[in-house]
Design a protein around this nucleic acid. Structure first.
Lengths: 325, 325
DNA sequence: TTGAAAGCGCTAACAG
DNA sequence: CTGTTAGCGCTTTCAA
């Protein structure tokens, strides 16, 4: 491995001079700089990032931590984060939090391999986040309501979003509205259920516990749960799913049982993922500003990094009316 | 920041002892180890990954470099890479290559912030890859045919895949088959065009240059190009798109012009992305083993890392018959 | 079984 | 403008 020392030797200067020259420090003369540059070129010198990071005590990279790297849901958020990170001339690495305590996410957070973290990974515990933040690492969470000096959140108005969705169903005359739930621990799921309940309450509907379907945010589970239900029973005329993936699974199940959407059963989802507008029938759903979640969150990281004040925020949602309801 | 030195001082031992203790080195006595562990706990000590990496001259992380982090196309590949990386108890970071020479990708590669690289990012030049490989960093490319001691490739049989797709169209009686092309520089696109041409040739069709439509692998462009074409002309009865995204855009355009798919115009794509089976009509396309691309590529990285022999490979494709043809 | 010390590759005072 | 040098936090050889 060719190091700065080698370059310096070849150029006949001190390492410090070589370092300055390569970093375009103005105190190095044009001639010296050229000598160094030439030497570096000839040796095909590559600075060692690890060494630089250690010395400078920063990495100039922001980490984005996701439960599952492959989730299509994240696309827009990633795009938003990416944008702001590059605007600040930092680097972005995306890491997975799958694998629990010895996941890449934990390592990168604990070992300070990033200067800031955007977290959308329920697998990372609140405790861990608090601990990391105590080492003065700026963190913005997108999947829970957590706050401290170094922790801010960017959330969407889940409650209001589902409140609107359910109110919409009620206004259209649907009477027996089921709730297709995500994992019970999920913050988003809880909030969406909350909005659902409130809408029912405010309209003097009472909720039949039998119409609470337990899913896990996946299409498969949505399909399975609703298929099973429709085998015996068809006491619902509408279904509100806590996310689009499950809604899509449910639609599949409903169609296979030869019910019409939305005539027999209406379906509304949450998230407005790309697929939702392509399926048949196109899915009514609650849209939220994913890209902006990414940009806001990352902005906040840099604010904290610069010691400026920042406020956590909750972003609005919007009901997108399509043909499934 | 609390360092190993602090822990050692608190525990009343030397740094080396503290280091051994924390790394479970058996030559440290139970009692000493406990003292160190307690001290570390009380101080909430976090080892510094950067320092360790520098010392050990390795990072135990593999980098996956993509043109665009947000592309839904990559999901399965990422999953495959992830799997093998964790099986080897390494970490995975995904980086973007957008932004050219000063992208995160370039930095991470050049500065050895990863121990190996899986590349699916046409924006990274061949030259760069060769240079990086000369520093003995194992690289596996998924988007071009490059090879050397430290470079291997995992590709799919693009030529054969599109040959089959086009032959299928011909067998079904379609006569005027258009080609909706991706960017001309794209390796995949070139190969897919090659397969297209061969299939025409082998069936004694001659290709009308007017039926070559230039897209860029995006849905929007596929939509635009085909919309424009259909305004004046309808001299095609089938369209082979170099990827599914463009095929989906084309389908949109065809439907908007009130042509029937596949009766008036058949459409075949390439990739078998998730959306393809959901759209209307479901898209006939060429499937390739994305997950396996990821696992094979990553396996190869570890092979090289261990000094074992590896061979580049080309994976087979499969025609998926749906209702668009 | 433990400790002292060298050094990974780099940056940045400081001195000249 | 350039060189000397300390040291970032850690691992590991060598000596005790």
């Amino acid at each position: 491995m060719v190091t700065l020392k080698d370059v310096a030797k070849k150029a006949g200067v001190a390492v410090s001079t070589a370092s300055y020259a390569l970093n375009n420090n103005p105190k190095i003369s044009e001639t010296t700089r050229n000598m160094v540059l030439t030497a570096a070129n000839e040796l095909d010198y590559r600075p060692n990032g690890t060494a630089r990071n250690l010395k400078k005590q920063k990495t100039e990279t922001i980490g984005l931590f996701l439960n599952d790297l492959a989730g299509p849901y994240y696309s827009e958020i990633i795009r938003g984060v990416q944008k702001v990170v590059s605007d600040n001339e930092y680097d972005l690495v995306v890491c997975s939090a799958s694998g629990g305590t010895d996941s890449t996410a934990y390592k990168f957070l604990q070992e300070r391999r990033v200067d800031g973290a955007v977290i959308l990974a329920p697998k990372i515990t609140d405790k861990e986040i608090y601990q990391v933040a105590r080492t003065q690492l700026p963190v913005v969470v997108l999947d829970r309501k957590l706050e401290s000096d170094y922790i801010k959140y960017v959330l969407i108005d889940n409650v209001n979003g589902s409140y609107q969705a359910v109110t919409h169903l009620i206004n259209r005359g649907y009477k027996n509205i089921g709730f297709l739930s995500g994992p019970e621990e999920s913050y988003d799921n809880k909030e969406r259920y909350e909005g659902f309940s409130r809408a029912l309450n405010d309209n003097n509907f009472l909720f039949d516990e039998n119409l609470l379907f337990k899913g896990d945010f996946t299409e498969e589970e949505g399909y399975k749960v609703i298929s099973k239900f429709l085998k015996n029973d068809i006491s619902i005329d509408a279904l509100f799913a806590a996310n689009d993936e499950m809604a899509i699974g449910a639609i599949q199940a409903i169609k296979e049982n030869n019910y019409q959407i939305p005539n027999d059963i209406a379906v509304v989802g949450f998230d407005d993922i790309r697929l939702s507008s392509y399926i048949n029938p196109p899915l009514t759903t609650v849209r939220h500003p994913k890209y902006e979640m990414g940009t806001f969150a990352t902005h906040m990281i840099f604010q904290i990094l610069q010691g400026a004040a920042t406020e956590s925020i909750v972003l609005p949602t919007q009901l997108i009316n399509r043909e499934s309801s």
